[in-house]
Nucleic acid binder design. Structure first.
Lengths: 191, 191, 191, 191
DNA sequence: TATGAATGAGACTTCATTCAT
DNA sequence: AATGAATGAAGTCTCATTCAT
């Protein structure tokens, strides 16, 4: 009826999409994918169920969008950690990771959950795999520059540690010595 | 009086229960708890849906039985690792863990999955938490006896590593350098 | 914004709700609550099973709606019986009750049935109890004004009679001398 | 195997049957027919489910047996109330009925419940109808002999009252003035 | 006579998805 | 772009009944 400019429409679209993604992320990260219904998401987003199918083909499609969203945000921040000094860079990497855990624990819960849905969502595993490989290479190089012995193996250990600490923090929450571990790792590897 | 002997009955029961537990474990470990239906389990087990409710009160009850089953098996084997020599004991612990990953990866996948179902199945988290705490204490003591510096922190690292390596192995599977990591850890901590 | 007007929506809703309530009442009053399945109700109402759960939280919830529906209708009519003359009021009360039996026998069948489901549906018993108490008080006062001896006891008798006649009419149906009893009671108590 | 005499077998049979009937009556009278499962009955009776089908063709068949049992017991006692004096006989009838309510309220609950399952269990209605008709005739005659005016109508009233008082007592239980009503009725009709 | 493991139909309920407006 | 009524398949669970022993 009322004529709207392309920009207006685009703005409306992206507003709705954002509302939906936010609501979906919140609920799924909190309660899990299977336990979150489309109705709940629509209600929290303040839109109708029908509208969701204008933007996302299916519940699964919506999930993929959430994941991509979550991971791309992380990457943006990762870019800032690189410094001239490898020791400093590694320190930054540790800081970044521990802060991610502190501030976005729900995101990590979600990624972990999906990582174990082997058959569905292979793409999450694929991503996790690539990312892990990248990390190992990146850290390995840093360790070598810093002068740590067995840099490859130690990098593999550290990559594993990242996941392991994440899990344990998720499970133990406030009882996990997150600060202490951060300090210890920095002292150990970043002299 | 009774038309079948008690032994016969007991045998029939435990056969059926085993068939159900096996089928349930296989499917749930493979596809996840929520994505596995009672119908699927019954079909794979070769029994009727109704029979499952003779032996298990609910789907959740069945899951608990699976978990308990899985964990008690693991504990049996854990008992064998203790030796007079702390270095040897730690070596055994590493061997035990890496072999668990190699031989019972599906079990670990299941436990991981449930660990992230925060609200339901608190008991799994509870168990995981206690087990982690026990491990840290146990390993810490070994490290001290062996003469590793910062034994407490290192124990915490190793406990984290166990989970982390598990995850990465789950995700990367055949490409993960499991043998190499096992060897490296033993060299590093068990001199 | 909204594609259908609020009135349209509301009309559609109440049409569906009415269809469901009608069908549910018919079947439950006829066959009993436990013997009536959601599927049967949906089929008779001409809607899907799922739709019922848009409007009612559960089968029990649906039943409560039916009861409230049925009773509120009755109360509306009860308001009309009061007159200046106590004798006339009592006559009206008798008329109202006998007509209820004649015209809405299924409703009484339903209420009777639920009254005997001791543990569930206490609210029906509660209502029945209160209603009975009210009746006794009300009738007692009328009888006193009319000058009947032992008004309290006679009121208690009459309240009992109401239920008793209802049951016998339900059971004997067309062979029960409903008209005759109505006439006799009016002569006896309303001179 | 072991040879048993006919009497022995017959005794075993009737013992088992009695245990089953008792258990079934207790549970069904307490919780209702639909809410009582064969399993519950078997457990309370201390026999296997299978055995029940040796003696009763179906759950419905079992119910019929219970009803017949319950009603025949009542008839035995009814025989004792007849006296030479009609006034005394009527007094005895009232006493009998009020004691039935006091002592076997569960039985009346059960009969009431089934009375409203119109389609199934027509035989209960049939019985109730015949019994009511008999009562009316019997009481009518007594009233005439005693010299109460309008004996037919009053008999119809009393028969209705019996059911009505039963219902109200069932619903109100300990708050119902059972003793008072008994006394009042005797005074009113038995001078 | 007696057992209880086993069945399978059917109960209530949830929820992703569609579609007329 | 947006709504929400409506659907129907699929889920968990119950239970009367059967049957080999």
């Amino acid at each position: 009826m009322s004529p709207k400019s392309k920009e207006q429409i685009e703005q409306i679209r992206s507003q709705s999409i954002d509302k939906i993604l936010d609501a979906a992320f919140t609920l799924i990260a909190q309660n899990g994918y299977e336990s979150t219904s489309i109705s709940q998401i629509a209600k929290l987003a303040g839109v109708s169920k029908g509208l969701m199918y204008n933007y996302f083909d299916s519940k699964e499609d919506l999930l993929k969008a959430i994941i991509n969203n979550a991971l791309s945000e992380g990457d943006k921040l990762m870019a800032d950690i690189i410094s001239d000094n490898p020791s400093q860079t590694l320190t930054n990497l540790f800081s970044w990771y521990f802060n991610e855990l502190r501030n976005h624990i729900e995101k990590w819960r979600l990624i972990m959950e999906l990582t174990f849905k082997i058959d569905k969502f292979n793409f999450v595993q694929e991503m996790a795999r690539n990312k892990a490989q990248d990390y190992v290479g990146f850290i390995s190089e840093l360790l070598q520059q810093i002068g740590i012995p067995n840099p490859k193996q130690e990098a593999q250990l550290i990559a594993g540690l990242f996941d392991g600490i994440g899990i344990q923090y998720l499970v133990i929450k406030k009882d996990y010595p997150l600060d202490e571990m951060e300090k210890y790792l920095k002292e150990k590897y970043c002299k």
